[in-house]
């Protein structure tokens, strides 16, 4: 007997492979998410009323401003000093190279908490800071305790530590630019400064910006370590409030909400910057219109 052929291979339907375990994973996650939501919503001990009340409370807002100030100033110190250290590291002068290397070795090799406390207690070993000729006369001097305020100690601790990390990032960025670029710039008669500014740094910044944005986000949260100096940053303020009312978790939630909001904004800025920096890198980009093209 012959079987009558009703379908040809061309119009035979294809049955896709099923993935039942994916659905199991989804079910498990949905289940646990529901448990978490129920905990967050129905647990009265979380005191969402308190969280809402403290979120925009004056002292909390002041804490947010302090945290932002610390982040920005420490990053500026870190980026400036880090760039200098990177250029020293790439110098032909071995003494400059070594100085930079030892700096990075020391500041990366000790905990930032130790560095913060070290600056804070500097006065105990160096009671006076003076300006003058080394081993010679001094022109002016100040009491260390007056100069190194808690804010100053925080900036020194966070900024000098950050410089060590930024030095590595900038060095990698500059090193990542094809040496042929510097040669082409030189061959066109550009001075070393022109070549750095116009050709090397714009290309290096594409490699430097993403990790620097990461460092900024890290700094935002790492700045909370200044609570050991008694500073009232975001975390310090939360601590100060819950030491009075014993509502630890609600106030830590207030701090977390602020940290998350700021991190989200920074992440968005980072994304935008990266997109702008990728100019000329992607092949899929459409050509920029020249004046001639625009007139058409």
């Amino acid at each position: 007997m012959t079987v009558e052929l009703t379908t040809t291979p061309a119009d035979e339907p294809i049955v896709r492979l099923r993935h039942p375990w994916r659905w199991v994973a989804v079910a498990v996650i949905v289940l646990y998410a529901a448990v978490l939501v129920r905990f967050l919503v129905t647990n009265d001990a979380l005191r969402w009323d308190l969280v809402r009340g403290y979120l925009f409370e004056t002292s909390v807002l002041r804490g947010v401003v302090t945290t932002l100030k610390l982040t920005v100033v420490a990053m500026l110190v870190g980026a400036g000093l880090g760039t200098l250290l990177a250029i020293m590291r790439l110098s032909e002068n071995p003494v400059l190279r070594w100085t930079s290397g030892i700096y990075v070795w020391f500041f990366r090799g000790t905990p930032i908490l130790v560095q913060l406390l070290g600056w804070y207690f500097l006065a105990s070993v160096l009671p006076e800071i003076s300006l003058g000729i080394p081993f010679g006369p001094s022109f002016a001097s100040w009491s260390t305790n007056d100069v190194v305020t808690p804010f100053m100690a925080a900036i020194l601790g966070l900024g000098l530590n950050e410089a060590a990390y930024m030095a590595e990032i900038v060095r990698a960025g500059i090193g990542g630019v094809d040496p042929g670029q510097a040669e082409a710039a030189e061959a066109l008669g550009m001075s070393p400064a022109q070549s750095y500014r116009r050709i090397i740094l714009p290309q290096a910044s594409r490699l430097i910006i993403p990790p620097t944005a990461n460092e900024t986000i890290t700094m935002l949260k790492q700045s909370s370590l200044v609570v050991v100096l008694g500073m009232l940053d975001l975390t310090g303020t939360a601590q100060a409030i819950y030491s009075r009312n014993f509502q630890q978790i609600p106030l830590l939630l207030v701090a977390s909400i602020w940290y998350l909001a700021l991190t989200t904004i920074l992440t968005y800025v980072q994304m935008r910057l990266e997109r702008r920096m990728s100019r000329g890198a992607a092949t899929s980009r459409r050509p920029r219109r020249t004046r001639k093209g625009a007139q058409r």
């Binding site: 094809d178 042929g180 670029q181 040669e183 082409a184 710039a185 030189e186 061959a187 066109l188 008669g189 550009m190 001075s191 070393p192 050709i199 714009p202 290309q203 594409r206 100019r279 000329g280 890198a281």
Partner: peptide, 19 residues
């Protein structure tokens, strides 16, 4: 650098500025 302005150079790998 000043003296090089009179001399043009073309490289094997082009070395155009990608940005």
């Amino acid at each position: 650098a000043k003296a090089r302005r009179d001399v043009g150079m073309v490289f094997q790998r082009f070395n155009l500025f990608p940005h």
